[in-house]
Design a protein around this nucleic acid. Structure first.
Lengths: 151, 151
DNA sequence: TATTGTTATACTCTATAACTATA
DNA sequence: TATAGTTATAGAGTATAACAATA
C-alpha cells in the first residue's frame, strides 16, 4: 500500500525498510473501519460507543470506579453514562454490601438481552475478517499477540 | 487474551471459535497505544494530531478540500487547522492556477524541516514493533494487508 | 446552479472543581 | 485524611448554516 502521506518520501528513508510506517498506516486505516463498525452497531441499539462498552463491561457487575478505569475516563463521566443506561432500563445501580460508598452497575433482564444481541451483531461479521480463512485469522491473531507482547 | 468484556460469555458462543472477538479486542488495545504514540509525538512538536496529519499530508501541496476528504472532516474545520499552521509559519496558502476558488496548502522550508523531524520521530520507534523481528513484522504486515484486501 | 473556502455559532464529548457520604 | 459518586461548569474538537467568490 502506498499511502498519500508517503508520496514525497525518498525510497531510501532511514525508516524505509523496517515496515514500521507501513504497519502503522495500515493499522490506522483498519482501525477506522472497526471503529465505524462498532459505532454503527452501537447506534443500531440507540447507544453511543461508550454506552455500548459499558453495557458489555457490566456483564459482570462492576463498580463505577472500575468502569472509569477501564474506559480511561473521569469518574464523573461514568455518572452520565449510568444515568442514561438506567433511564433506558438497561442497568441498575446496586449498593455494595462491603462499602456503602460504592455502587455496582448491573444489567437488568432487558439489559442482558440487549447485551447479547449487541455482541452477536458486533461479532457475527467484522469488517476485513469475513473474507479471510480460519488459517489467515490465526496468523493475524498470532501476529497481533506478538505485537501486544512486545509492547 | 481473555478480555474483561468476555468474562460472562459461554465457552460455546456462536462467535466463540472464529477469533473475530479476540482480534477485534486486540486491535482496539493496540490502536490505543499507537494513537497515544502519535498524539505524544505530535505534541512534542506543538501540534494536535490533526495538525500533524495535515503537515504530513501536504508534503505534496493539496487543496483544502482534498485535506478535508482525507481527514474525514468538514471543510470549515480545515480552515482552522490551516490558520494555526500558517500562523506558526509551517505552511502557506497558495492560489491554484487552474481554479481561483481553490487554495493549495504547501509547506514552507520551516514546515518541511518539521515534517521530516516529525516523521523521523514517529517511525523511528513504534510501540509494539520494536520487540519484533523483521520476519515477525513481515508476517504482521502480510496479515494486515490480507485484512485490508478483504474489506 | 454548484463548489471552495471563511466566519459565526452550536453541539458533543470529556475533564475539572466543589461537594456529600462513607471509609 | 482519602475515596466513591454526583453536580455544575468549562474546555476541546468538530459540525452546521450562511455567506462571498468563482466555476
Amino acid at each position: 500500500m502506498t499511502t498519500d502521506a508517503s508520496r514525497s518520501e525518498p525510497a531510501s528513508s532511514p525508516v524505509g525498510d523496517s515496515l514500521r510506517k507501513e504497519i502503522f498506516e495500515l493499522f490506522f486505516v483498519l482501525f477506522g473501519k472497526l471503529r465505524d463498525h462498532y459505532a454503527g452497531t452501537a447506534a443500531a441499539f440507540g447507544l453511543t460507543p461508550q454506552q455500548a462498552k459499558t453495557i458489555r463491561l457490566v456483564g459482570d457487575p462492576r463498580s463505577m470506579r472500575e468502569i472509569a478505569d477501564v474506559l480511561q475516563c473521569d469518574a464523573s463521566y461514568v455518572t452520565g453514562i449510568a444515568d442514561k443506561l438506567e433511564d433506558s432500563g438497561l442497568i441498575e445501580r446496586r449498593p455494595s454490601p462491603a462499602d456503602r460508598r460504592v455502587k455496582q452497575l448491573a444489567l437488568t433482564p432487558k439489559g442482558r438481552r440487549l447485551r447479547a444481541a449487541l455482541e452477536e451483531k458486533l461479532f457475527s461479521a467484522v469488517p476485513g475478517l469475513e473474507g479471510m480463512s480460519g488459517e489467515q485469522r490465526e496468523v493475524l491473531y498470532g501476529a497481533l499477540r506478538a505485537m501486544f507482547d512486545a509492547c
